[in-house]
Computed example of a mutant assay.
Amino acid sequence: MIKKFFLYSAILFLFVGANTSNNKIEETENSTFLHEVSKLDIPYLQNNFVAFKEALAYKESRGKYTIVNTLGYLGKYQFGKNTLSRIRIHNTRDFLQNPELQEEAFIALCEINKWILRKDIKRYSGKTISGIEITESGILAAAHLAGAGNVKKFLRSNGTNCFSDAYGATIKMYLRKFAGYDVSVIQGNRKAHV
């Protein structure tokens, strides 16, 4: 059931993404699209976990499963090799060719990060740091970018210790950009793996 839900949501995201890239969709196309989506019985994606993961994937790789960036980060969610090893994925070639494995890996990493950051999520959610309202989804997105340890440092330093990656993305950017999604479907699990 969950795999079917994620598959449908990925199809919806690809279809919407393909149509919205033109920036001008006529009213009739929107009506036709909504009618076709309703036939598929796909839930409306507003601020749920699927919308969160697809938004993050788009930021990371434009949603492309087989991409490898200039620093060697892999796949739709741009995993490092050390992170993949932690969740028991050792063959990066197979990983790049397996969308289902990449989706499972993302969920496992979210579960680990939620467990590591559980106290910080409870302590800081709803507060404002550096002009940014802190949310659970923002924290999980920032942990995906910078690692849970760097997110802890940022939160506990009241925003003065801010990680930036090689491309200039920061914890602050991710906290702001990915705030407000409902990620309650993810349960913290320090031993999560694929």
Rank of each mutant, 00 (worst) to 15 (best):
K81L: 06
F95H: 02
A108F: 03
E60W: 02
N161G: 00
W115Y: 12
A169V: 09
N30K: 12
K177W: 06
I129M: 02
Q46A: 06
V16G: 00
I139Y: 06
L96C: 13
K76G: 07
S85I: 10
K152L: 06
R118L: 11
R88W: 03
G159E: 05
C162P: 00
A51M: 09
N19M: 15
H144P: 02
I25S: 07
K122T: 14
G75P: 10
T28Y: 10
S21Y: 05
V37H: 03
I42E: 02
T160D: 14
K81R: 13
R123L: 11
G72N: 00
D41N: 10
T128E: 12
G75W: 02
I129R: 02
T160Q: 14
K127L: 11
L12S: 00
T83Q: 10
F13G: 06
Y58W: 09
N113I: 03
N98W: 00
R88V: 04
F49N: 04
T128W: 08
N69K: 01
N161E: 13
Y181T: 10
N98C: 12
L40I: 04
I11R: 01
G126A: 03
T92W: 02
L140N: 06
H35K: 09
Y174M: 07
C110Q: 09
R123D: 11
T135A: 08
E111T: 00
N22Q: 11
L45I: 07
G168S: 05
S157K: 02
L12M: 01
A148H: 11
N189K: 07
L140T: 08
L45K: 08
Y174V: 10
K3M: 04
N47P: 05
K64D: 14
L56K: 05
L84G: 14
N30M: 10
T32S: 10
K114Y: 04
I186S: 08
Y44S: 01
G72E: 00
K127E: 12
K81N: 04
K64S: 13
G17P: 03
L109E: 07
A169Q: 14
I107T: 11
D182W: 03
D165I: 08
S130V: 13
D120N: 15
N19H: 09
R88C: 12
A179C: 07
T170S: 15
I171F: 03
G159P: 03
N150W: 04
